[in-house]
């Protein structure tokens, strides 16, 4: 179909690209089992750095804080992002819609340093005038994360709403369902996969964020990325390799399982649709 030369080129680019993406991660994992304290110099196989990692209370605290923030953030961001997406796609024009649309999509193109700095200034100003937040940490980081993650959720929801069209919602109205009823019976169930995707995205965005969190945090509140950053800034550390290994392997497993389940459902559905087409021939 296409000249073999171009196929070979594409294939080699694909292989190179995948190697480029995965060899560094693979080496990260390999060196986590290095007995030597100097990361890039191989000193024999050992799991001692995992032990060091697990024994560090600091790591556990940071992980707990990060997960806590990520969970709360993901839930609120999904809620707010879904509302924002619904408002932007389904409500036609309302007062201040342009401003709203701009505000909802702006965090996507905003450099993190700006978001972080401006939110910190807000928290300081708020403290001056209303006495809150008294101490920066969990609450301020979560608020900051919700603000930018809800933009991502809103984008997913918006594209899904646009993609699914209004026909099903009109059909429900036609059958006597009031708008709120339509939302509950039709729109939200159909949005569920999008909301799940949004939740997962918000969760990882929050777990991953270093810059914004380090602006709006206060003394004593270290998230996992902040802990990692403070350690690796000074050079390579084998216990961070161990941590990276755990994260990468966990994610791989989760994605592989999710992918497998989705693939099976898709296959099942395709098979059923195949069977269904014979119905007309009776």
């Amino acid at each position: 179909m296409v000249k073999r030369g171009s196929s070979t080129f594409l294939l080699s680019m694909l292989c190179f690209g995948m190697a480029f993406l995965y060899v560094p991660m693979f080496l990260l994992i390999v060196y986590s089992f290095n007995n030597s304290k100097i990361v890039p110099v191989w000193g024999g196989f050992s799991t001692r750095w995992y032990k060091v990692l697990f024994e560090s209370e600091e790591v556990w605290n940071a992980l707990a804080l990060s997960v806590k923030i990520a969970l709360v953030n993901a839930s609120f961001a999904t809620l707010l992002g879904t509302l924002a997406g619904l408002a932007l796609v389904r409500f036609g024009s309302f007062r201040g819609r342009t401003l709203f649309g701009g505000m909802v999509s702006a965090p996507l193109v905003m450099p993190e340093v700006i978001t972080g700095l401006s939110l910190l200034m807000l928290f300081i100003t708020l403290k001056e005038f209303v006495g809150w937040p008294d101490k920066r940490g969990f609450a301020t980081i979560t608020i900051a994360h919700i603000t930018f993650s809800m933009a991502y959720v809103a984008v997913i929801i918006q594209s899904r709403l646009t993609g699914m069209g209004t026909t099903l919602e009109e059909a429900a109205q036609d059958l006597g369902a009031r708008p709120l009823r339509v939302l509950v019976d039709i729109t939200l169930p159909l949005l569920a996969p999008g909301m799940l995707a949004g939740w997962l995205l918000a969760f990882t965005l929050s777990l991953d964020d270093l810059v914004i969190a380090s602006f709006v945090t206060g003394p004593g509140s270290n998230t996992l990325p902040m802990l990692i950053y403070s350690r690796v800034r000074l050079g390579l550390r084998p216990d961070i390799n161990a941590l990276a290994t755990i994260i990468i392997v966990t994610v791989m497993f989760a994605v592989a399982i999710a992918g497998w389940i989705m693939m099976r459902q898709q296959k099942q559905k395709e098979r059923e649709m195949q069977l269904a087409t014979t119905g007309d021939a009776q």
Binding site: T167, D174, D185
Partner: peptide
């Protein structure tokens, strides 16, 4: 009169069956 209060029903071109 909003659609949900009209004494009419519609059969949509795409059928609009609720997939769930």
């Amino acid at each position: 009169v909003p659609p949900y209060e009209r004494p009419v029903n519609m059969m949509f071109q795409s059928y609009a069956l609720f997939p769930h």
